[in-house]
Computed example of a mutant assay.
Amino acid sequence: MEQSELDSLQKAYLQDTLTEAQAQRLAQLRAQGPVLDEKLAFEYDLGKAIALNERKRLKVKLEALEERPKSWRESKSFLAMAASLALLLLTSLLWYLSSNVGAGRDTFEQYYEAYPNTVVSISRSADTNDDIEQIAFAAYDAGDYSRAISALKKLASRSDVPKYHFFLGQAYLAEKEYSAAYGQFKSVMVQGGDFTLESKWYIALLFTRESPEAAIPYLTEIARNKGYKAHEAEELLDFCLKELVRNKGYSVEEAEELRNLLE
C-alpha cells in the first residue's frame, strides 16, 4: 500500500469525510495492524480534546477583549503588544523545531536496549535438561532469540503469565518483529501486574519509529510515575510533542496545551 493512500485515508477519517469505500478499506487496514488502529483512535481523541480546549481558550480571550474600551483595542499599545506576542510565538516555534532529540527510527535506536533476564536463574545444565523455562531463558541470555521465541511461545500458550509474554515481546523486538512484539506487550498491559509499566515503555518506544504522537499517553504516564524510565520518558515526550508541530500541523501552543491536558 502506498503511503499517500494511507495519508489520504487517515485525513478523511480524522475529518469525518470517509466515503463508504474508504471506510471499508480503512477497516481492513486497522484489522491487520493494531498499531495503526491505536494511532487513529489517539489522533481522533487528540483532535477533539485540542479543539475543545482551543474553543474555551479563545472564548475567554474574546470576552476579555470585549470588556476593554474600543479605543484601547485600537491603540498603539495594543498593536505593539500583539506584534510582540506574534514575534514571541514565532521565536518559540523556531526554537521548538530546531532543538530536535532525533527523528523516528533514529530515536528508537537511541533509546532501545533489551531488558535483562531478571526472573529465571539459569542452571549449568540448561542446554541438556527438559525444563522449557530454562531452555527459553538460557537462549534469551545467550542472544539466541529465535530459539527463545520458540520456547517462550510454548510457555505463554500453557500459562498466561506476564513474564512469558513480556520476554517473548523482548525476543521479538530483538529480532525486529515489531508487530509481534507490540502484541505481546499489549497482552501484558491487559493482564496487569508484573512488567506492566515496562511494557508501556516498550510500546511507546515502538510508536516513536512511525507514529510518535501515539506514544504520548504512554510516556506521560511513565513520566508521572517517577520510576522506571521516567527521565527517558520526559525526553521522548518532548520529541513526540515536537513531532506534532513538525509533521501534524499543530502550533507550539497547542502542543504545550496537550501536555498540560494529559498531565
Rank of each mutant, 00 (worst) to 15 (best):
M1L: 13
E2D: 13
E2Q: 10
Q3L: 11
D7W: 07
D7T: 09
K11T: 15
A12L: 02
A12W: 00
Y13P: 00
L18P: 04
T19H: 04
E20D: 14
R25S: 05
L26E: 02
A27T: 07
Q28N: 09
Q28F: 07
Q28Y: 06
P34Y: 05
V35K: 01
D37E: 07
E38T: 00
E38W: 00
A41S: 13
L46F: 05
G47P: 02
A49T: 15
A51I: 09
A51V: 08
N53H: 14
R55H: 13
L62I: 14
E63F: 08
A64G: 08
R68Q: 15
R68F: 12
P69M: 07
K70L: 15
S71K: 14
R73S: 06
A80M: 08
M81R: 11
S84Y: 15
A86C: 09
L90Y: 13
L90D: 13
T91A: 11
T91W: 13
L93C: 09
L94H: 06
Y96W: 11
S98D: 12
S99K: 14
S99R: 10
R105F: 15
R105S: 12
D106S: 12
T107C: 02
Q110Y: 10
Q110D: 09
Q110H: 11
Y111C: 04
E113G: 10
V120W: 00
S121V: 13
I122H: 04
S123Y: 09
N129Q: 07
Q134W: 11
I135T: 14
F137K: 05
A139D: 05
D144G: 04
A148Q: 01
I149P: 02
I149Y: 00
S150V: 10
A151F: 02
A151E: 00
K154Y: 10
K154G: 06
S157V: 09
K163D: 07
H165K: 12
L168P: 02
L168V: 05
L168M: 03
L173I: 03
A174R: 14
A174Y: 06
K176N: 14
E177K: 12
A181V: 02
F185R: 05
S187E: 14
M189E: 14
V190K: 08
G193Q: 01
D194P: 03
D194Y: 13
T196L: 11
L197R: 14
E198Q: 15
W201K: 01
Y202F: 15
Y202P: 00
I203Y: 02
A204D: 01
A204E: 03
L206V: 06
T208K: 01
T208Q: 08
R209P: 06
R209E: 05
P212E: 05
T220C: 12
A223W: 04
A223H: 02
K229C: 02
A230M: 07
H231N: 11
E234H: 05
L237G: 02
L237S: 04
D238T: 08
F239E: 05
K242E: 06
K242F: 01
E243M: 08
L244Y: 01
L244S: 00
R246I: 04
K248G: 08
G249M: 00
E253Q: 15
E256D: 09
R259F: 04
N260F: 10
L261F: 09
L262H: 06
